[in-house]
């Protein structure tokens, strides 16, 4: 599918709600260089959301959707959680899976899309919370990586079960006291990035969403590598400001504090040699393609 396909029938163009007219006229479908800097200049692929005011997850959603290299041919698979409140407002095909099943659903979907559209690139991106990825869905998450299923898994890590009142999750840090975990977490935060690396992911990154350019680069790399090389995993810290006792304006600072050296979300990246080579080749091809155009303009 391309932007040409996303058109309103001319008979109804004058009566369509304005957000859809904007989506057709000003969105970034089909633009290979799309990125977070389009936010504010173009129609975003997220119309609205019902997340809490100042929720870092909403920032993460906006950056991710702005960074997908191929949104018109991308299917996102979500799971139960705060993210599932946003997906109905997203102008990208998406599937809501049963809690924890997201990587199993994405595996089948990716295989089916490969068979159905052999000559077209179809990206599958899983986006789920830490409960779905690490606790309830850990089996499906790991098995997809063991099988080398070619899609990206993004975990919105808010370190607890946010929209059910603050229960302890595997990704909660040791000793943290939450509303529904009053005695404090007894064991360490599960080290899923390391597990992902050992499970066969070719590109693993652990970061916060405080730096949109970095998020854009990581998401693009992850999706591009998942097309050809193997599974990729991104763990993004999206703190639940309500459950950790912060105000709406304090989400960004919380992320900045947690990415300092030695902190649990200090930027960590793991990339295989094959993946590194693939990205380098891709970059070289892009530069080579850009040269004639530059010469023409001189």
């Amino acid at each position: 599918m391309s932007k040409e396909k996303i058109q309103i029938c001319p008979e109804f163009s004058d009566i369509m709600p304005p957000e859809y007219r904007d989506l057709v006229e000003q969105s970034t479908y089909g633009n290979e260089d799309r990125g977070w800097k389009d936010i504010g200049n173009s129609k975003e692929l997220i119309e609205a959301h019902s997340l809490c005011a100042g929720c870092p997850e909403s920032m993460a959603f906006r950056y991710i959707l702005a960074s997908l290299p191929n949104p018109e041919d991308t299917v996102m698979v979500g799971s139960t959680g705060c993210t599932s409140l946003v997906f109905p407002m997203v102008a990208v095909h998406n599937i809501h899976s049963l809690f924890g099943n997201q990587n199993a659903v994405a595996s089948g979907l990716k295989r089916a899309l490969t068979v159905r559209f052999p000559d077209r690139i179809k990206d599958v991106v899983v986006l789920a919370g830490d409960g779905a990825t690490v606790d309830i869905g850990l089996d499906m998450t790991l098995q997809a990586w063991f099988r080398q299923e070619k899609f990206t898994t993004i975990c919105f890590d808010n370190e607890l079960y946010a929209n059910t009142g603050g229960q302890e999750s595997g990704l909660m840090r040791k000793g943290f006291v939450a509303k529904m975990a009053p005695t404090g977490k007894k064991f360490d935060k599960v080290r899923l990035p390391e597990i992902a690396r050992e499970s066969g992911c070719c590109y693993v990154v652990n970061l916060t969403v405080s730096k949109p350019s970095l998020v854009e680069k990581v998401i693009k790399n992850a999706v591009l590598l998942a097309r050809e090389v193997g599974p990729t995993y991104i763990q993004l810290y999206t703190p639940c400001i309500l459950e950790i006792g912060k105000n709406s304006m304090e989400g960004l600072q919380e992320m900045r504090d947690s990415e300092k050296p030695g902190e649990r979300f200090n930027y960590k990246e793991y990339i295989t040699d094959e993946a590194k080579q693939y990205l380098a080749d891709l970059d070289a091809r892009k530069k080579a393609a850009a040269i004639p155009a530059a010469q023409l303009t001189e």
Partner: peptide
């Protein structure tokens, strides 16, 4: 509402004809 394929386009035209003939207002379920 969306120009998915030829059939959708034809149907949209027919609906517009119907709306003009009645005449009826069109309010979309977008």
């Amino acid at each position: 509402l969306w120009n998915w394929n030829e059939k959708a386009a034809k149907k949209a035209k027919a609906i517009k004809v119907l709306a003009d003939v009645i005449p009826a207002r069109i309010i979309p379920m977008a």
